[in-house]
Amino acid sequence: MQQEKLEYRFFILSLVMVTLLFGYLLQSFFGVIFWSSVIGIMFHPLYSKLNSAFGSKPNLAAMTTLLICCVMVIVPTLLIVGSFFQEGARLYQKLDSGELDPGSYIEQIKSSFPIVQEFLGRFGIDLDNLKSRLAEGAIAGSRFLAENAVQLGQGTMAFFLQVGVFLYLSYFLLRDGPQIIAILIRALPLGDEREHLLFRKFSEVTRATIKGNLVVAAVQGFLGGLIFWFLGLPSPLLWGVVMTLLSLVPVVGAAIIWAPVALYLLASGSWTDGIILIAFGAGVIGLVDNLLRPVLVGRDTALPDYLVLLSTLGGFAMFGMSGFVMGPLVAALFLSFWEIFIREFNPSFDPHHLDAEKELEEWQGEDSKARDE
Rank of each mutant, 00 (worst) to 15 (best):
254 A>N: 03
254 A>H: 01
256 I>F: 14
256 I>P: 10
256 I>D: 06
257 I>N: 03
257 I>K: 04
257 I>H: 04
258 W>G: 11
259 A>V: 11
261 V>R: 10
261 V>F: 09
263 L>Y: 12
263 L>E: 09
264 Y>E: 02
265 L>S: 07
265 L>K: 08
265 L>G: 10
265 L>Y: 09
267 A>L: 07
268 S>H: 07
268 S>T: 07
269 G>W: 01
269 G>C: 03
270 S>P: 03
271 W>L: 15
271 W>Y: 12
271 W>H: 10
271 W>E: 11
271 W>R: 05
272 T>N: 07
273 D>N: 14
273 D>S: 14
274 G>D: 00
274 G>I: 00
274 G>W: 00
274 G>T: 00
275 I>N: 02
275 I>Q: 02
276 I>P: 03
277 L>I: 01
278 I>C: 12
279 A>V: 13
281 G>V: 00
281 G>K: 07
283 G>F: 10
285 I>F: 11
285 I>P: 04
285 I>A: 05
286 G>D: 05
287 L>K: 13
287 L>C: 06
288 V>G: 08
288 V>Q: 14
289 D>I: 01
289 D>H: 05
291 L>P: 00
291 L>S: 05
292 L>V: 01
292 L>S: 04
293 R>M: 14
294 P>R: 11
295 V>R: 15
295 V>E: 04
295 V>A: 09
296 L>N: 10
296 L>K: 12
298 G>F: 04
299 R>Q: 14
300 D>L: 15
301 T>R: 12
301 T>K: 11
301 T>H: 15
302 A>Q: 13
302 A>N: 12
302 A>M: 15
303 L>N: 07
303 L>A: 04
304 P>S: 04
304 P>G: 01
304 P>C: 02
305 D>V: 02
305 D>E: 12
